[in-house]
Design a protein around this nucleic acid. Structure first.
Lengths: 160, 160
DNA sequence: ATAATTTAATAGTCAAAGATGGTCAACTCG
DNA sequence: CGAGTTGACCATCTTTGACTATTAAATTAT
């Protein structure tokens, strides 16, 4: 298993046991895993971003530490946030995938629907000769359109 | 016996013993057979396609690997029909929409999933300055990708 | 005592190196 | 000619290390 995955899992386990907020010492954690301290930053920046549903804070100097906070958001609220603020007019395949996973995790859409959405937005679906920037714009429009559909039917029918 | 055939057989044997899904390291397999790593890609792209009843995924970078998944016979046939007879390499929004509706009627996918798929392929999702012909090609790629995803997960996840 | 300075303990950034897999065009062989 | 094979080059993800920034504690100067 990748080191990064192990560290991610370790942190998530800590957060389950304790609360939606933990503090840790970067150097201690690095020593525990026998890796460079900056590895911890890598894990945080690739797996504990706002898109993943987390925010982090830190303080340097003696007694300094890193705080990781899980954002508790209702799925409707999250959907609204995505449509109004997050998506914008361009999005990468990776970011789109992370957001879909999050929606599924929250129960806003089924695992299945998330996978279908990711498939639609995956790079392989875009193997035609147009600039990458245009692909990101197309993806944003598609995602927006799909999520609007989800939101519309969310009110009336149950989950999905 | 040709190398490609040997590799194909090797992989299929692995899949019999284990489950309908295996992971392998491209470089390890290539080394085992004493061939170029890209030979593995050749085998995958000629013998483990959706038409043959398989889909593949991969991940690059440290700890990366290739995953090969066998799809069910039913899904395979269903897919083969759609992919070969119906979709082609370009499709209109209208035709795509009708196809999704039919799939939902037949219970192959949920109403919800059909709506999301239609939203992804709707004309509004394509309001960027590229030729219409290109849009139809993009739509076909997207649809193929979404359907292989559906077929792949038909086995594992219940509803759809 | 208080202020200023130094030291030690933290964390952050960034670029390079390492570890995978992908693509494609040229070459080979039946 | 066509399926198979290879290798050069590319893309992506992970890991590390050197250098930087910040803060609390300890020390020194007034």
């Amino acid at each position: 298993m990748r080191l990064s995955d192990a560290i991610e899992e370790f942190i998530k386990t800590m957060m389950e046991q304790e609360e939606a907020e933990i503090e840790l010492k970067r150097n201690d954690l690095a020593q525990y895993f026998g890796c460079a301290p900056s590895q911890i930053n890598y894990v945080l920046s690739t797996r504990f971003t706002p898109d993943h549903g987390y925010v982090t804070e830190s303080r340097r100097g003696g007694g300094g530490c890193i705080r990781i906070i899980r954002i508790e958001r209702e799925s409707g609220e999250f959907l609204q946030f995505l449509l109004e603020e997050r998506i914008g007019d361009a999005i990468s395949p990776r970011a789109a995938q992370i957001l879909c996973s999050k929606l599924a995790e929250q129960g806003a859409i089924s695992q299945r629907t998330a996978q279908v959405m990711c498939a639609a937005m995956a790079p392989e679906s875009f193997s035609v000769p147009i600039p990458e920037a245009l692909k990101d714009r197309l993806r944003a429009k598609m995602l927006r359109n799909m999520l609007t559909t989800v939101a519309r039917h969310r009110a009336t029918s149950g989950e999905g």
